[in-house]
């Protein structure tokens, strides 16, 4: 859902400049038709889900016998809704903090210093962005299972494994956003701080990090969303009784489709949409994705 919302934003951002010099031409009409189709294709499932979540009957039939918002009040009836949402939020929060703790220093090192292995670090930090999530999930799964066998310590389904796995996909985003932010900073501002008597740590704490604030906030929100909505990788690493919200929705959908699950999807979408709205105040999404 989040990726749809993201894609929709990008679609809009890309379309915006065309509005400025729209002319009536075959190409113009075609482009507009494509854009409208694209937006519809992305919006229809969401609108349908929202629509269904207000059906009165437990069984989805068209037309519905009536409408009600009772599914939202009964949301706790969704199997382990609280647990799953809690796990999702907890994992996302830890992955966010962890990726900031790793990503900010890494970005500073990448931008500010020339060292042996810099190129390698750069590739390593950004490569998960190019590898499909399922592949990462599978490899993490294999690694974790091997470790379990070697240590006889149950790891699958534990928070630590989920967080570590999510770090693989959140750190690259944090690095990417922070590096973009750092590259744009005037180096002489930090020199001015040193010139005025600030030691290196003071410069970092009082000047560099505050100037990176926008990048850091954006990185945190992005990391949170990426972790919160992740399915492909998480699928391999959950255990019975320990699952995230997107996965419990997926599992539920294998058995039935009803207004309750639609309501749950809407709640999840709202969480992500509000984070994206917040994020949009900090970065132009079209520039970084």
């Amino acid at each position: 859902m989040a990726s749809m919302a993201t894609a929709e934003r990008i679609g809009k951002a890309a379309a915006a400049p065309r509005v400025a010099h729209a002319r009536v031409s075959v190409a113009g009409v075609l482009v507009w038709a494509l854009i409208v189709t694209g937006i519809l294709a992305m919006a229809v499932p969401l609108v349908m889900t929202a629509y269904i979540s207000f059906f009165r009957d437990a069984v989805v039939v068209f037309p519905p016998s009536g409408y009600s918002s009772s599914w939202y009040t009964r949301i706790m009836e969704f199997p382990r809704f609280g647990d799953a949402l809690g796990t999702s939020l907890r994992i996302a929060a830890m992955a966010t903090l962890g990726s900031l703790a790793l990503g900010i220093p890494a970005s500073l090192a990448l931008v500010r210093y020339r060292f042996i292995g810099r190129g390698v670090l750069n590739v390593l930090l950004l490569s998960p962005l190019t590898v499909p999530g399922v592949v990462i999930g599978l490899s993490v799964y294999v690694a974790v299972v091997e470790t379990e066998i070697a240590t006889e310590f149950p790891l699958i389904g534990s928070d630590i494994v989920l967080v570590l796995a999510h770090l693989l996909i959140t750190v690259p985003w944090v690095v990417r956003l922070c590096v973009a932010n750092l590259v744009g900073l005037d180096r002489s501002i930090e020199e001015a701080a040193a010139n005025l008597g600030a030691r290196p740590w003071s410069v970092l704490w009082r000047v560099t990090l505050p100037m990176m604030r926008q990048g850091i906030v954006a990185a945190a929100l992005f990391a949170f969303i990426v972790s919160f909505e992740n399915i492909e990788m998480t699928l391999f690493l959950i255990a019975p009784g320990q699952t995230t919200l997107p996965i419990s929705i997926l599992q539920y959908l294998e058995y039935k489709v009803d207004p309750l699950v639609a309501a749950v999807v809407m709640v999840q979408t709202l969480v992500i949409a509000s984070l994206l709205l917040l994020l949009d105040r900090y970065v132009k999404l079209s520039r970084i994705v």
Binding site: S188, I189, E191, M211
Partner: peptide, 9 residues
Amino acid sequence: FQSYALFPH
């Protein structure tokens, strides 16, 4: 500094 390098925050 030529660019003034004021602390923007």
